[in-house]
Design a protein around this nucleic acid. Structure first.
Length: 330
DNA sequence: AATAGGAGCCGCCAGC
DNA sequence: CAGCTGGCGGCTCCTA
């Protein structure tokens, strides 16, 4: 478990990126050991009207299992040699490297993105690709999980990536509980293409949101695009087109993601058999469920349950994050 | 593990 | 004319 997280606060850090990282890794239900560090101890400026104080220097990067770089401005500027060297060293050590928004440019400058798939804020994806041709930039996703290197798109997509990390480290139930606590959708499996032309779609106003909600309550049934379109009272073609526009993903892929998530929660929270979970999540057969787990999570349902099973009857009620604990505290 | 049938997806186009 | 709709054909992917 890569639970020692070091958040690197580069000067003129984007407050929201920084806040997302430090808040999401501060919940006791997902007990990371969080450290916040800067190029040096002391004051780090933000792009907002205030500063942050960091008690750790770059050494914290050498003690981390996960290094997270929030966005900073301007993203074009040269970063201190020592910062790049420490990022490079952490990467070479096998450390998990994570960025939010323009933080990807710091990872790229350190050579960490070479040979990896990555993303960044939609306005800067082509620039990232041009400046770092050895990275494969995907402009259409909220985040990219390329194993050791994970990058997220603009600002709020950092929420999605952090929840993704929590989901992988502590399970779907914990991640979903934290998502509920901070009042965001637990799982947006979408590209960022949808956000280029317009602001964040308000789910309550999206024409198809009622159909999605309905589908979520009927995941155990076979749901064809024809049925979904009928529920939304439009043709299949129009339904498919609007669905992609609203969610950034296709109906069938969206359904598969929701079903997988439900199966994960059932594995964690119940002792139902694999067959029963396959049935209740709408993934059909145990065979199919195993296929999904192998393909998307690189593990088996039983191994997943063993790793994440909650103590029986545990009621997850996530509270406010604890004070930041440094690596060195007991 | 390989395969076949079917559903899903998407580009294209015509119509409103 | 622009913009949305929805039917069609063919390619792709999933599942049994």
């Amino acid at each position: 478990m890569a639970d020692r997280v070091a958040v690197l606060a580069i000067d003129d850090i984007v407050p929201l990126d920084f806040g997302i990282a430090t808040q999401l890794f501060g919940y006791p239900e997902a007990p990371y050991r969080l450290a916040v560090c800067g190029a040096r101890r002391g004051t780090v400026s933000t792009t907002g009207p205030y500063h942050v104080q960091v008690s750790a220097g770059l050494q914290a990067l050498a003690e981390a299992d996960t290094v997270l770089v929030p966005g900073f401005e301007p993203h074009t500027r040269q970063l201190p040699r020592a910062v790049l060297a420490h990022l490079r060293a952490a990467y070479a050590r096998g450390c998990r490297m994570v960025s939010i928004c323009t933080g990807a440019f710091a990872l790229a400058a350190a050579g960490v993105l070479d040979g990896h798939r990555a993303t960044t804020h939609w306005r800067l994806t082509s620039e990232l690709a041009a400046r770092y041709p050895n990275a494969t930039v995907d402009p259409d996703v909220l985040y990219v999980d390329d194993g050791q290197v994970l990058t997220s798109a603009g600002v709020a997509a950092g929420l999605d990536l952090c929840l993704h990390l929590i989901r992988n480290d502590f399970g779907a139930a914990v991640a979903n509980a934290i998502a509920r606590q901070i009042v965001v959708a637990p799982y947006r499996d979408g590209g960022q293409a949808q956000y280029i032309e317009r602001a964040l779609p308000d789910d309550r106003q999206s024409p198809l949101s009622a159909t999605r909600t309905w589908a979520l309550h009927h995941l155990d049934e076979t749901l064809s695009v024809a049925e979904l379109a009928a529920h939304a009272a439009v043709s299949e073609r129009t339904f498919a087109r609007r669905f992609v526009a609203e969610t950034g993903t296709t109906p069938q892929r969206w359904l598969a993601a929701q079903r997988l998530d439900l199966a994960r929660e059932l594995l964690e929270r119940s002792d139902a058999s694999i067959d029963e979970i396959a049935d209740r999540s709408g993934l059909g057969s145990a065979d199919n469920l195993r296929n999904y787990f192998r393909r998307h999570l690189r593990t088996s349902p039983t191994a997943y349950r063993r790793a994440f099973a909650l103590a029986s009857n545990t009621e997850l009620d996530v509270r406010m994050p604890q004070r930041t604990a440094s690596h060195s505290s007991p």
